[in-house]
Design a binder for these strands. Sequence first.
DNA 1: CCGCTGGCGTACCGTACGGTACGGTTCTAG
DNA 2: CTAGAACCGTACCGTACGGTACGCCAGCGG
Lengths: 216, 216
Amino acid sequence: MPVTIKVNEETFTPRQQAVLTAALDLLVENGDGLTMTAVARRASCSKETLYKWFGDRDGLLTATVQWQAAKVRMPVVDRSHLNAKALRLSIEQFARDLLTVIVGEVSVTLNRTAVTHAAQEKDSLGLIVLENGPLAIRRRLKPILEAGRDARLLRFDSSEDAYRTFFGLVVRDVQIRLLLGDKALTQSNIEANIEADVKAATDQFFALYGAKANNA
Amino acid sequence: MPVTIKVNEETFTPRQQAVLTAALDLLVENGDGLTMTAVARRASCSKETLYKWFGDRDGLLTATVQWQAAKVRMPVVDRSHLNAKALRLSIEQFARDLLTVIVGEVSVTLNRTAVTHAAQEKDSLGLIVLENGPLAIRRRLKPILEAGRDARLLRFDSSEDAYRTFFGLVVRDVQIRLLLGDKALTQSNIEANIEADVKAATDQFFALYGAKANNA
DNA sequence: CCGCTGGCGTACCGTACGGTACGGTTCTAG
DNA sequence: CTAGAACCGTACCGTACGGTACGCCAGCGG
């Protein structure tokens, strides 16, 4: 019952990772209709093993989400020599990574699962996704923004506000529409426009927070 | 089995509305742990009646979501005489309404339910929420934006892009964090800042799309 | 007063699924 | 070769819940 909280570098054996992969696949395919029996069959393992390793269904779900979420690694941009061009490229890269991740099928599935979970006062999954999603972005983006400000390339009072504006400009209504299953947003449809959207968002961000207003 | 699709003005009797209210209350309280038995008990009606009226569980859920979603009515702003001040007030009002709705407990619950539903290729609820949420905003906002453009108060190529930017600037990361159950966002916490956020978003929107850049 | 319809309450059924038990098999250690 | 651990496969149990059946009462037209 007291499932060992997998804090951070919980190392899963390859076999366990295979199980988690199977679980994730099932999650992506069948939505939250994830069955212990189904996972066991897909992973060619016994249910007893599942319970031995992960405690219960929630434990398996948590491990899966956590394990996958931790794999999303935003590239760290170096903020050593910051000129205008480098800053812009960094921001743009952030926007690109953010959009690419959010649009991905895995991300949509994970977010849906976490939201579902949060709808039953079991907020553990929600917190994990939150931590590895928006908050991770924030942690990584803020230093860059502040470096930009120190270099007089950006202008803002609160880096928190700047980050949230950035998030809004990039994500817009895409994520919620994907979560709600908007058929008008096909994968290919979005991916084709990612570059344009990234550029637009970056332009807008600099228009709002650039030290000198640039009317692109 | 063929649940009659409640297209639009499906008039529910007062008794039925009471049932739907009960269902909505349970949804808000217990998340998606909505049980037919629980609804019947709460509404003091029999399960048989529920099935007679709504067909099955999904039918009840759909009716509830649809009925509630339809109650969210954005005030229509008159776009007869558009000066800069009136336009700004309209936009601001939109931002305020949008944020207020999105932040509300009912909205969070409905969106969570719809997302959960969408996670099981049953996208009906997702479509309903989508239709009455983001898309409703879009339908109502676009004419105003275009009127603003025609009056040379706004400048943009695509009203679609302008709408989406507006959405992003207003909503930012608030909705997804609420859906994921972020404890740092308490109801009161947000509501206290709504006015400031609304003003900031409006300022930013006009900075990006105003005919003349105003450096507020 | 009689019968009928609508709806309440409850008991009931079937099933799906979380969780457990157990026999059989492979692998490793000594 | 033997003992034991790990694990697979499967059968099994308990329960929760969607959905149905039925008995009962209230209101109402005749």
